[in-house]
């Protein structure tokens, strides 16, 4: 069970969080002209990197804030957690 430091609440157990997917994806802007391929990439395609990766997590059983976590996908080491605007 991971120990995750919510940037708003501090160290908490993984039980309080929900994983929210790849944290490096940017949603295309509204009303933006975009090709089928670009849109499909946004909706479906995710890298599954081995090693360092930035992820989204959601403190669902806590402050309900979404935030980012830089984590090693092989060792589960967490290097930093930060607010989405950081």
């Amino acid at each position: 069970m991971l120990n995750i430091k919510c940037p708003y609440c501090g160290d908490r157990s993984q039980k309080e969080f929900a994983y929210g997917g790849d944290g490096t994806i940017t949603r295309p802007k509204l009303n933006q002209e975009i090709s089928d391929e670009e849109w499909d990439n946004f909706v479906y395609l995710r890298k599954s990197p081995r090693g360092k990766h930035i992820e989204l997590w959601h403190h669902i059983a806590g402050c309900r804030q979404w935030f980012k976590v830089e984590r090693d996908t092989t060792t589960h080491e967490i290097f930093r957690t930060f607010k989405p605007e950081e």
């Binding site: 929900a18 989204l56 959601h58 309900r64 804030q65 979404w66 989405p84």
Partner: peptide, 17 residues
């Protein structure tokens, strides 16, 4: 109910802050 709330929070906090 729970999924929709998380969905709304995601768009407000991450996509359109």
């Amino acid at each position: 109910a729970a999924n929709v709330l998380s969905h709304l929070e995601y768009y407000l906090q991450i996509v359109w802050p």
